[in-house]
Design a protein around this nucleic acid. Structure first.
Lengths: 223, 223
DNA sequence: CTTGATAGTGAACAAGTGTGCACTGATGTG
DNA sequence: CACATCAGTGCACACTTGTTCACTATCAAG
């Protein structure tokens, strides 16, 4: 699960054979990202110091600047990486959906397993979405908006919603994203070992989604 | 609007006549709280230093300990104060509701005006709800859970929902709280001067609430 | 009027911070 | 093979941080 601190220096020495310079640079860059993510488990990006990150990654503080201009830049990189796993999750959900007829059930299931295997990424996004400063917060906001747009397009492909207006699709997408992010936060908050609590959260998540579907349908037939 | 830095020392000297010792202690304690809130406009509690707060409040760093044992304690105090204005808002909403028949419209309106007049408190709650560390985060979570319970009781008093189960009421309350907090975050994010954007957010908030009402009603008639 | 309590002061401390600079040694290139 | 590139080093600097301690000046109570 890639937990645990691994010094890049030793790592780069051991696997030194047949690795280009670019590859190794990329590797320690990744080591910085991973180190940060590890330290951010129960802290804030703002309260994370450059020196801590480099120490955890196993390089000297000044070497940080070979990869990022500032901690803010590291933050942006973290947003990128985290959003990538979010997108991977959606692809996964699309795949699983086709093999099941209960879209809600299968989607929540993929959400659950993806969150549990990439807790760091999801936790980071949720935390910094509101707590983040300046560029990081802005980046997350932009990405999530984009993400909701994509979901809206996805929704429009369902037979039941083919005739919906763009605005209605968008509202539904926003509601779903918000609801899902809420679920993510609950999952990330809870102790990983407690399967019982997990199942309750999943149950609630399904309920919320069904409620949104019913609500939007009713809303439209009303108008 | 109580913006702006006011040195407590000068304040206490000027109004020194006829003030008990306790009163003055309370006053500088409040000065610390206010100073923190001011500094937290675009930052994190975790990234806020004791020295900054005392400087902004106009006292010497070590005097901080006469009022709080740690920055964490200050955080708890901030949660208390912020939750108090949240509750004040609900009372206000209850009052306005009785004079209007459109509950949703009047509630959103009170939410809006309360958020705009107490931005600091709401912003703090939203930020630290997820970003907060340890006790502060826990305190907010507890308070919000309690808050949702109260709302559930409130909802049960409506004629249409008198027969609902506690669980259904609770789910609806949770949904409303989540939706409202989302709206709060959007309001706090946006530039205060932009009335146009404000109105759009309010419109969306009403829409979301109506959708929840429709959804829950449909959900229940389905079961 | 005296005296004990205490809110606020100011100097000091060790520890941690971001960043500048000259360096080294392996790597890719002409 | 010689040489330039550059990821990573190590020392240095000036600052900021939380907390200690002995202190002062004022208020409340005897």
């Amino acid at each position: 699960m890639s937990r645990g601190k691994v010094d890049v220096r030793t790592l780069n020495v051991v696997t030194a054979e047949q690795t280009t310079r670019q590859e190794r640079k990329q590797r320690t860059r990744q080591a910085l990202v991973d180190a940060a993510l590890r330290l951010l488990t129960d802290r804030n990006l703002a309260s994370l110091s450059l020196r801590e990150v480099t120490k955890e990654a196993g390089i000297v503080p000044t070497a940080f600047y070979r990869h990022f201009a500032s901690m803010d830049d590291l933050g942006i990189a973290l947003v990128d990486e985290s959003m990538r796993t979010l997108r991977r999750m959606v692809r996964e959900a699309r795949k699983n959906r086709s093999s099941s007829e209960d879209v809600i059930r299968s989607s929540v299931q993929t959400l659950y397993s993806q969150v549990r295997t990439n807790e760091d990424h999801f936790r980071f996004l949720m935390r910094e979405r509101y707590a983040g400063t300046g560029r990081v917060r802005a980046a997350i906001a932009t990405e999530l908006r984009l993400f909701a747009s994509e979901l809206a397009v996805d929704l429009g492909r369902f037979d039941e919603m083919r005739a919906w207006s763009a605005e209605d699709l968008r509202m539904m997408a926003d509601l779903i994203v918000t609801a899902m992010l809420g679920t993510v936060m609950e999952l990330v908050d809870v102790d990983t070992a407690d399967r019982e609590a997990d199942m309750e959260i999943i149950r609630q998540a399904r309920k919320r989604l069904r409620l949104i579907v019913i609500g939007v349908a009713g809303w439209r037939s009303e108008a």
